[in-house]
Design a binder for these strands. Structure first.
Length: 254
DNA sequence: ATGCCTCAGCTCCTGAGA
């Protein structure tokens, strides 16, 4: 079984690339972030023709998430229960016996800003909700665009970007608190090439120079870790003509 | 310090992303 996550920065623009990638990488579950379209515009038919059903939670202009899967999705939850939010960022469902959470974490813009404060509140609410989901579902995967690096190894220029957005101590502490629930960074369960990132700035030849960040993550529970066999970041779509700035992360299970 | 790209929208500029 394979699960993947990919911030595609507009499904309107990227649908052909998503379908092409799925054809070449027939994963069982694909979590998408930044759909940037309303629910009525979601291309459910195109996914169905490719052999995938989908759950989606869209929004005009910004955000929007989806779970695309071979098998049916049950017990679907949209956003964090009890956390009032007008932004579509979380989609949760049980697929093939795994509790799958796809999430688009807030960007935060700049430390000290109102958006940063929202990011911190959102992370607290997510953690407390995930705690309960883990208790109810031993097999759990939390994947998406976290907009947080774990440490310097996830940053192309750790000194130049120290304490900037995605790299602050506060964000990393929240990420560690999430991991502290009993989750594991699937990427680090396996040997990885040095300077492996999941996002590169569109500007300044970021991808060509491999000036990137690893901010897209797959966290897994103990029971899923026991089944994990590989976790890779697929840079191929970043070489496309009109790419997303993020690359897909793929987890392979027994 | 800012723009460098890219996308959406109250579209020929601006806000936001990361």
């Amino acid at each position: 079984m394979k699960l993947a996550t990919w911030n595609i920065n507009s499904l309107n623009v990227r649908l052909p690339q998503v379908l092409e990638w799925l054809a070449a990488n027939p994963v069982d579950v694909l979590a998408l972030q930044e759909l940037k379209l309303t629910d009525d515009k979601f291309p459910a038919q195109a996914f169905a023709e490719a052999g995938y059903q989908a759950q989606w939670f869209g929004q005009k202009t910004y955000n929007g998430v989806a779970l695309v899967s071979r098998s049916a999705a049950g017990d679907v939850i949209r956003n964090i229960p009890g956390f009032v939010d007008d932004q579509s960022r979380v989609l949760c469902a049980t697929i093939d016996g795994i509790r799958v959470i796809g999430a688009y974490f807030p960007n935060g813009q700049e430390p000290g800003s109102e958006k940063f404060a929202y990011k911190m509140r959102w992370l607290d609410a997510l953690r407390e909700w995930v705690r309960g989901e883990m208790a109810a579902h031993p097999q759990l995967v939390l994947m998406g665009d976290y907009n947080i690096t774990f440490d310097d190894a996830d940053v192309w220029d750790p000194d130049g970007l120290r304490e900037t957005i995605h790299c602050t101590t506060e964000e990393r502490q929240k990420l560690q608190a999430l991991v502290g629930l009993g989750l594991h960074d699937a990427h680090r369960l396996f040997e990885q090439p040095p300077r492996t990132y999941s996002w590169w700035d569109y500007r300044m030849l970021g991808f060509q120079k491999n000036r990137g960040l690893r901010i897209d993550h797959i966290l897994v529970s103990d029971a899923v870790r026991a089944r994990a066999r590989a976790c890779t970041i697929d840079r191929t779509p970043r070489k496309n003509r009109q790419p997303s700035d993020h690359a897909p992360v793929v987890l392979t299970l027994d």
